[in-house]
Simulated assay, not measured.
Amino acid sequence: MSEPTRVVVLDDYLDAVTRCADWSVLPADVVTVTRHIGSEDELVAVLCEADVVVATRERTRLGRSVLERLPRLRLLVTTAMRNAAIDLDAATERGVLVCGTRGNKRSTVELTWGLVLALLRDIPGQQQALREGRWHTHLGVGLEGKTLGLLGLGTTGSQMAAIARAFDMDVLAWSANLTAERAAACGARRVERDELLARADVVSVHLVLSERTRGLVGARELALMRPTSYLVNTSRAAIVDQTALVTALENGAIAGAAADVFEVEPAPAGTPLLAAPRTVLTPHIGYVTAEEYRLFYGDVVDDIAAWLAGAPVRTLNAPAPLHERKP
């Protein structure tokens, strides 16, 4: 009798994956890893017997140097339909099929507005003050009549714009390929990036990380913002120069910042942004909701079942036949 298919699920920090889908339908041995593995050698040791590896978003880098050391790996499933931490070319060359899942960007939109409100109304600070016996220690800032500047007006940015209108905010938007017509259709006005930074009371980042967007908001761009303006980033940390951001916060060049993303995750204790003033910070929880996990991992189970049945779904690559797989 052949060995059962071995499935390893990475980065299940909350030990919630097995509760969010019915894994019992799979004729497989499912193992979940509830901590982050930073060492490549340790990662390979954990995955070396895996036929299937499940990656939660971009929590772990699965590059060529890792994939080449996993001889049994046949299927790699990632939550959502894009994962920059997976070397698709290397997977394809080695005959490893990569599949994705559906996702709902509304959860990130909801968190972003939670961060905006927490930042402008100092909700964490006021709660702490109250617990310490102090009353009214900060003058909050309202949203009505303010200007939201959106760097990126895709699915997430357009949903941000819709909610901003409910707050009676003016909405400006910019991205490299954004047209005035597209912006208007979303209830925003397309302006150049520098104008957006100079005029917006709240700047919110909703761009995909690429070589073009890496470091897009640096010291020069932060200097265009006003001392009363706020920056919110729930996209990718590297889009904003983290050193420049910390400096701007320490110098009072901007009023505050909120972030759900960090260049190294989980963020080490010495990460400078963690000690910066006037910040609201969360540990990349934009998609960490019960509803999103049920969608993600329900689809993961379906992906694995379909692959085992010989009819894979939601494929992200087209690997070579097994006999052409590189040694």
Results as ranks from 00 to 15, higher is better:
Thr32Trp: 04
Ile304Lys: 00
Thr156Met: 13
Leu209Gly: 09
Ala306Thr: 08
Val98Pro: 00
Pro327Asp: 13
Tyr297Met: 11
Leu67Cys: 01
Val54Ala: 01
Gly187Val: 06
Ala176Ile: 03
Ala85Ile: 01
Val96Arg: 03
Gln128Glu: 15
Ala275Leu: 11
Val44Leu: 03
Thr92Asp: 03
Ala276Asn: 05
Ala311Phe: 06
Gln127Arg: 15
Thr78Lys: 00
Thr32Asn: 03
Gly187Ala: 06
Val30Ser: 06
Val33Ile: 15
Leu73Pro: 00
Leu73Asp: 00
Pro327Thr: 12
Asp302Arg: 15
Ala21Pro: 10
Trp135Gly: 12
Thr60Tyr: 00
Tyr293Phe: 14
Ala253Val: 08
Thr101Phe: 04
His136Gly: 13
Val98Gln: 01
Val208Glu: 11
Ile123Leu: 15
Ile86Thr: 00
Trp307Phe: 14
Arg214Pro: 04
Ala162Tyr: 02
Leu115Thr: 00
Ala80Lys: 04
Phe262Leu: 03
Arg182Ser: 14
Leu88Gln: 04
Arg325Glu: 10
Leu88Ala: 02
Ala276Glu: 05
Gly270Arg: 05
Gly63Asn: 03
Ser107Cys: 11
Leu224Asn: 06
Val280Tyr: 01
Ala45Asn: 08
Val217Thr: 03
Ala161Ile: 11
Leu295Thr: 09
Glu58Gln: 06
Glu181Leu: 10
Glu265Tyr: 11
Pro327Cys: 10
Ala305Gln: 12
Arg189Thr: 15
Leu111Glu: 00
Arg82Ile: 02
Glu40His: 13
Val25Leu: 14
Ser235Leu: 04
Leu249Ala: 00
Arg64Gln: 12
Asp260Glu: 09
Asp11Met: 13
Glu49His: 10
Met169Ala: 11
Ala185Tyr: 05
Ile123His: 10
Leu14Asp: 14
Val52Gln: 00
Cys20Thr: 13
Glu211Trp: 10
Leu120Lys: 01
Met81Arg: 14
Asp168Asn: 15
Val66Ala: 00
Ala318Cys: 07
Ala223Pro: 05
Pro227Ile: 06
Ala267Val: 11
Met160Ala: 07
His138Glu: 14
Ala118His: 02
His36Pro: 07
Leu117Gly: 13
Ser204Met: 08
Glu110Ala: 14
Arg102Met: 08
Glu40Asp: 15
Ala275Tyr: 09
Asp41Gly: 15
Thr108Phe: 02
Thr34Met: 05
Arg35Pro: 02
Leu216Glu: 08
Gly145Thr: 13
Phe167Lys: 11
Phe296Asn: 05
Ser229Thr: 10
Ala253Phe: 00
Gly157Trp: 07
Pro319Phe: 04
Thr60Cys: 02
Leu178Cys: 06
Val191Asn: 02
Met1Thr: 12
Ser65Thr: 12
Glu292Ala: 09
Leu148Lys: 07
Ala188Cys: 06
Gly95His: 04
Glu324Thr: 12
Pro312Ser: 03
Ala161Glu: 10
Ser158Gln: 15
Gly103Leu: 14
Gly95Phe: 04
His136Trp: 14
Ala28Ser: 13
Val261Thr: 02
Gly125Pro: 09
Gly95Glu: 04
Thr18Trp: 05
Gly133Asp: 13
